[in-house]
């Protein structure tokens, strides 16, 4: 299966992009790309689950809220996440993230994410109908 996330360059920080057949899948891919800024997402064991909800006035702001909710959970729980399930209803999001506590010697986390930004922020469908969710994150 093709990887549903990637990074794109930004001079000071890092661009993250999720790609999928639905908005939800693109949001899930963007979350994996967020983890990918810190460590290899496949190295994160989905041992514990955390639920979260967000609301925003539009889909793009919802994407930023979703990523910032993950940044918050990672920071306060000292966890990394490697699996995500997102449900979107209008501009409300309900999600579950699975992960484990940071283990520095195994995860070798490269950098901490400060927050998701509105730079290069977009949620759109490409010509093949795939949803693409992206923004730059400040590290």
């Amino acid at each position: 299966m093709m990887q549903n996330w990637e990074h794109f360059p930004h001079k000071a920080d890092m661009g993250i992009r999720g790609i999928g057949p639905t908005r939800e899948a693109a949001f899930e891919g963007a979350a994996l790309a967020l983890t990918g800024v810190i460590t290899d997402p496949t190295e994160v064991i989905p041992a514990q689950k955390v639920s979260m909800t967000c609301q925003a006035p539009d889909d793009e702001l919802l994407l930023v809220d979703w990523l910032n909710a993950l940044v918050y959970e990672m920071a306060t729980r000292k966890m990394l996440f490697g699996r995500f399930e997102v449900h979107i209803n209008g501009h409300s999001l309900q999600a579950t993230a699975w992960g484990e506590p940071v283990e520095v010697t195994r995860h070798r986390p490269a950098v901490e994410v400060k927050g998701a930004t509105y730079t290069e922020l977009s949620l759109k469908q490409d010509e093949q109908g795939r949803w693409i969710a992206q923004c730059v994150v400040d590290v």
């Binding site: 809220d65 910032n68 920071a75 927050g115």
Partner: peptide, 12 residues
């Protein structure tokens, strides 16, 4: 983290 959170919240 405090500054990052304030930045994110007020940006929105």
């Amino acid at each position: 983290g405090l500054g990052h959170q304030i930045g994110s919240e007020f940006l929105k």
